[in-house]
Write a protein that binds this DNA or RNA. Structure first.
Length: 633
RNA sequence: GGUCCCGUAGCUCAGUUGGAUAGAGCAACUGCCUUCUAAGCAGUAGGUCUUUGGUUCGAAUCCAAACGGGAUCACCA
């Protein structure tokens, strides 16, 4: 409709304004809720052309639109704003058209190019936590949204399955795991622990042992005993100690941290872990077997968590396969002068012209760094999926700089698709007690949290839900839907790039702007339609319409545009807010009129049709957020 | 210190091509179930949009600076 009026105005411009006008002068906006009108045209831009007051310009436009646009009932001008009111017939036609589209708002499948969406990307040394939940819900939702606007989507994750952190867990397990009567160390099978939890436990064990050892070394240093310490380290420690004199508390703490780092590096246990990594890289059979076994435990645990979360992947990449990639590209890049080599053999890229720093892309010993690997992996993915058009990396905003550099490098290497790569950067999740820190044990475990919200949903639903006639399986399923729906909605309704506060108590709230609020509306409409034995019929275009009803049709009409915006901005939050608005409008309507028990048949059918469409759009929107829409609750 | 992100009601957040009197939810208070699910609805109260300057008919929104919070600046990943 907006487009229609715009075109008509452009075509009529010579008559109306005496000259053609530029499209940008025609500015539409939503009419304020407290004004009469369905669409508002800003009059001010026309004032200069017409050389008259805003009142006169408004009157002229009002007259022209009222006489030339058929769907317009009437207009009114208020202080430079032309509020246009469409006819009821127009809105009923809109609703009729929506009724005919079961996938209303969605674009045809595979009408847009293939996009790869990466999310989750965990380390295999510890369980998933709250931060992963935001990442995974966000990535999974964006993947669904991109699919809904027509993209073919490949969902993927990179599993960070190698490196010193894994060796720490492995070593601690070998050193500290108790041996049972049958001579076995702890396994998921003989302890009943989830694999990722068991491995995570030994990662913590490692850190504990490391801290004890490091403290002992620092105590020695304090007492002036450097007999076990290389002279270079001894000098460094003494220098830091000297630098502390006369500094404020903050600077002293920073120096103490540096000394502690040195002490940790001197510990026996860290040396052993490093040796283990060397052995792993040399494919030592024993170390490799241990690595395979323990990672296997972790994957089994992760699979369980992903299943509970309701997310999945189309293609997995393992860092142990990809960490050597990218070296060839770097060598190629030296030839084409994208990179340069320093005398020690290390390879760099100079990005100072772009306002960034110099960045290392290959170590002097020829081994790959994180960046090397990401360059290689990106190129590899475009080989794996020849029709791939772009990629979305769901990674926390602490990596903003890394991805800026990565995309720039890919561009300089001459890959046109580098422009279609996007870092879906999201803010950290804080707790009321502050930042999550694994060292301080303030990490919120993903499994525990999900179990907790489901349990809470169970209590609340048993208290006030409508469960009669549901068997136990159906009930458990409903509690899960409500608990996880609430959690997902809570994490997704906030603009991804903003740092957010996670309040465990609010995440399982049921009232206000929450998942269960939306789910409740869906369930309520479902039973309503069931009671009315509703089926779709074309609506009479003369059905009387209340303002609340028109507001709902207007909001429904915005669905497609909102979905497009959400896809363009990679923001599920837009859909969350849209759904919330829709439900609020619907609830107002629901409380003010009769629906099933409405005596007038045409009005009844119209209200049912409206309800049915709200339910369907709501289910679609919630689905894109990964939130399930129960039939009753 | 350089670079990037953020700052809106007591709290959590909306506010997307600059536009009318800046909106929700939570918390507080008042009403509404003998009519379809009250996990709901209607209402009261709560604001220097961090500050200052600039751009313009018009700024929460754009620009600059300051202040506050965070991230990042490794031959770690």
């Amino acid at each position: 409709m907006e487009q229609h009026i715009r075109q008509a105005l452009l075509a009529a411009a010579p008559d109306l304004f005496g000259a053609p006008i530029h499209e940008s002068l025609i500015q539409f906006q939503q009419t304020r809720r407290d004004m009469e009108g369905d669409l508002t045209l800003v009059v001010f831009p026309f004032v200069k052309i017409l050389r008259c007051s805003p009142q006169e310009a408004g009157a002229k436009l009002k007259h022209w639109i009222e006489t030339h646009i058929e769907s317009v009932s009437h207009c009114n001008v208020v202080s430079g704003f032309l509020n246009i009111v469409f006819t009821n017939t127009y809105w009923l036609e809109q609703l009729n058209q929506m009724q005919d589209q079961p996938n209303y708002g969605f674009a045809p499948a595979d009408s847009k190019p293939t996009v790869m969406v990466e999310y989750a990307s965990p380390n295999t040394n510890k369980p998933l936590h709250l931060g992963h939940l935001r990442n995974i819900f966000l990535g999974a939702s964006v993947a669904e949204i991109l699919r809904a606007v027509g993209h073919k989507v490949v969902r993927t994750q990179v599993i960070n399955d190698r490196g010193i952190h894994i060796c720490k867990s492995m070593l601690a397990w070998e050193k500290f795991s108790p041996v049972n009567a049958r001579g076995e160390r702890e396994t998921p099978a003989n302890t009943g622990l989830k694999g990722d939890k068991l491995v995570g436990k030994y990662y913590v064990e490692f850190d504990r042992a490391l801290q004890i050892e490091a403290k002992a070394i620092m105590a020695q240093w304090q007492s002036g005993n450097f007999s076990d310490t290389p002279t270079a380290i001894e000098e460094a420690v003494l220098n830091f100690e000297k630098a502390k004199e006369g500094k404020d508390d903050k600077a002293v703490a920073a120096l103490d941290d540096k000394i502690k780092e040195l002490a940790k590096n001197q510990t026996q246990i860290l040396q052993e872990a490093k040796q283990m990594l060397v052995k792993w890289e040399a494919r030592d059979p024993q170390v490799y077997l241990l690595w395979t076994t323990m990672n296997g435990w972790v994957y089994a645990g992760f699979d369980q968590t992903y299943a509970q979360m309701g997310v999945s992947f189309d293609k997995l990449y393992y860092e142990s396969d990809t960490f050597l990639l990218g070296k060839d590209q770097v060598m190629e890049g030296i030839k084409s002068d994208v990179f340069y080599q320093k005398p020690d053999g290390s390879v760099w890229i100079d990005l100072t012209a772009e306002g960034l720093d110099e960045k290392l892309v290959l170590r002097s010993d020829g081994t790959a760094v994180y960046m090397t690997q990401d360059i290689g992996t990106a190129i590899d993915r475009f080989k794996d999926f020849p029709d791939l058009h772009g990629m979305v990396y769901t990674v926390g905003n602490e990596q903003d700089y890394h991805f800026k550099v990565l995309f720039l490098i890919l561009q300089k290497l001459g890959y046109a698709w580098a422009n279609n790569c996007f870092h879906l950067s999201y803010g950290m999740v804080d707790l009321p007690s502050g930042k999550m820190k694994s060292r301080e044990g303030t990490v919120v475990d993903a499994d525990d949290l999900m179990a907790e919200v489901i349990e809470k949903a169970k209590e609340m639903t048993q208290e006030r839900g409508h469960l009669e006639g549901l068997d136990n399986t159906a009930r458990e399923q409903l509690f899960t839907q409500i608990g996880l729906g609430g959690l997902k909605y809570y994490l997704l309704k906030v603009d991804p790039k903003k740092r957010m506060l996670f309040n465990p108590e609010e995440s399982i709230d049921l009232t206000g702007n929450t998942g269960p609020f939306l789910q409740y509306a869906h369930a309520r409409i479902s039973t309503l339609l069931e009671k009315a034995a509703y089926s779709i019929t074309p609506l009479s275009l003369t059905t009387p319409m209340r303002p609340e009803e028109k507001e709902i049709i207007k909001q429904l009409a915005q669905f497609g545009a909102t979905l497009e915006e959400a896809a363009k901005g990679y923001s599920p939050a837009l859909l969350a807010n849209y759904s919330y608005e829709l439900v609020k409008l619907y609830n107002t309507f629901y409380q003010s009129v009769k629906i099933v028990i409405e005596p007038d048949a045409a009005v009844r059918q119209f209200r049912l049709a409206l309800s049915a469409k709200v339910r369907q759009v709501l289910a679609q929107a919630l689905g894109l957020l990964g939130v399930e829409a129960p039939q009753r609750m």
